[in-house]
Each structure stands twice: as C-alpha cells, then as structure tokens.
C-alpha cells in the first residue's frame, strides 16, 4: 500500500470515530461542560433587577457568601453529614459484606435485607422513616418510652435534626456499598485462607492482614462514591426537615436549590455550585492520581 492510501485510510477511521462520538459529545457539552462554565461565569455577575441589569462584580458574590452565617452553617452541616455518613456507612457495608459472604443460615434473606434500601427511592425511604421519627407516636419514641425516656421531636429540634437525616442516609447507602465489597470478597482465593490457617493465623488476623489490604481498591472506589453522594443525596430533606429547623439540617445542594428556585437568587446559587464543582474536581483529581498507579483504565 502506498503512503497516500494509508493516510487516507487513517483519516477515514478518524472521521468515523468522531462521527460515532458526536451525539454523546454534543449532549455532554450541552448538559455538563457548558452549564459548568456558565455556572462559573454567572457566579461573577451581580443579580439583575428590572432597574439595574446584572453586571460583572468579580469575586463579590464569593465575599458576600463567605460572610453569610447561613453559608457557614450549611457548609459545616455538610461536613458533619459527610464526616459521619461516609465512615459509618462504609464500615457497616464492610461488616455486611463479611457476613453476607460467610456460611450462615438464611444468607439469602440477609443479603436481600441489606440490599433492600438501595432499591427504594430516597423520597420513599424518607416517608418510611417519618414513621420512626414522629414524636410520641413514632417507633423510636415508643421504644425509648419503654425505658422511661422522654419523647423527642427528632426532626423538629436543632440538636437532633441533622443526625436523624444522617441516620436515614446511612441506612440507605450501606447496602449499596456492601455490594462492591461482596464482589471483591468473592475474588479472594480460598487458598489464602487455608494458608493463613496453616500458619496459625486467627480469624481476626486473617481479616486484618489479608482481607482488608486486598479490599483497599474497593474501599477507594466506595469512598469516592460516598463523597459524591454526600453532596448529591438531598432528596430526603424535602420530606423530613426541609433543611430546618432554622437551617439545622440544611445541606449545600439543598441550599442551592432553595436559592435558585425559592428565592430566585441565581448568582448566589451559581457561586455555591462553583464551590461544589471545585470540591468534586479535587475528588476527581485525587482519584485519577491514585488510579493512575494501577492499570485500571486499560
């Protein structure tokens, strides 16, 4: 084959490749990249009114945001929310997976029970939990009343609202993460266990020294998902607390929704969204760096 025809063939393949990619790329640009840039752009402009059109204000929106006590409250809430839901649900998921992988009676039921919340919409999960949190009449208050404890308005008071929301999230998420651990556990060769037994290693040593290190990549994957979920999972707030009382359980994305669609303050929403994108970008960068060391994307 001559050089020219090789070149032609290569160009033809490149053309086909781009044509196949085009539909997906157009949608990705329209609904991911363009909106992301528009968000950043919008965060640099003031809120337009009928009399005063919106104008470029630089980082003023950010300064306003940082000096807003509600912003501080919401960010701290989200940090607490992430700081508790991530480690607790991942730890429970690991325990669940070890149990669901063990030779126990009724393993099928156990697995299904752990996984069930994953199949439910968050809205439905929140409805189910309302029944638990209702003061006086709810399941939790009924149980604590047996021990002579007073009734608590779990969702209605500042001290407990956020933690009640966290409880629902952990319940909803743990079974989902369990699945990934279960998959990883099933790839561990039984010979390792035999070898450990021959060496005289107990169960705890085997789990800690052999199983956990082998699960490290899964943990990484689960953690990244858990971080993302701690930002995007806010559906239950709409049912349980609406972010209240007095912002006590408000999370960052709920705040964005409220700013944009209840108060119509688009610049404020865009500013907060930009900050969320920065955080997610950092998570993405960390994941890419860590995964780069392993041959994951080949």
């Amino acid at each position: 084959m001559s050089n020219a025809s090789v070149d032609l063939e290569r160009r033809r393949i490149a053309l086909y490749g781009w044509m196949l990619l085009a539909p997906a790329l157009i949608l990705l640009i329209t609904f991911a990249f363009l909106p992301a840039f528009e968000t950043i752009w919008a965060s640099l402009y003031s809120k337009g009114t009928i009399r005063r059109p919106s104008q470029f204000v630089g980082f003023e929106n950010y300064l306003t945001l940082f000096s807003d006590p509600a912003f501080k409250k919401v960010v701290i809430n989200n940090l607490i929310y992430a700081g508790i839901t991530i480690p607790v649900s991942v730890a429970i998921a690991l325990g669940m997976a070890l149990w669901a992988n063990a030779q126990i009676v009724g393993r099928g039921f156990v697995r299904a029970a752990y996984f069930t919340p994953t199949m439910l919409p968050m809205i439905a999960a929140a409805n189910l939990w309302l029944f638990f949190y209702t003061p006086d009449l709810g399941v939790i208050d009924r149980i604590t009343a047996l021990f002579g404890l007073p009734s608590v308005n779990w969702l209605g008071q500042q001290e407990t609202a956020l933690y009640s929301v966290i409880g629902v999230t952990i319940w909803k998420e743990a079974g989902f993460y369990m699945i990934f651990y279960l998959a990883a556990l099933q790839t561990i060769s039984p010979e390792l266990r035999e070898a450990a037994t021959v060496e005289g290693a107990g169960r705890w040593t085997y789990t800690r020294r052999v199983v956990l290190p082998l699960l490290a990549p899964t943990t990484m994957f689960v953690l990244v998902n858990a971080v993302i979920n701690s930002v995007k999972l806010i559906d239950h707030l709409f049912i349980l607390t609406k972010g209240g009382p007095d912002n006590a359980s408000k999370l960052v994305l709920y705040w964005v929704w409220e700013m944009a669609f209840a108060y119509f303050d688009m610049p404020a929403a865009a500013t907060m969204t930009t900050l969320i994108l920065v955080v997610l970008g950092v998570v993405a960068a960390i994941q890419f760096v860590v995964l780069e060391r392993r041959v994951h994307y080949r």
Partner: peptide, 17 residues
C-alpha cells in the same frame, strides 16, 4: 470527568438550558 460534574449539581444551569 462527567462522572464528577454531576447533573444533580448543575440543576440551575441545566434548568436554564
């Protein structure tokens, strides 16, 4: 990267779009 630029996060601009 789109795995991280979630549609959930871009609700406002996607609504405009």
């Amino acid at each position: 990267l789109q795995l991280f630029i979630l549609p959930e996060v871009l609700i406002v601009e996607n609504y405009v779009m």
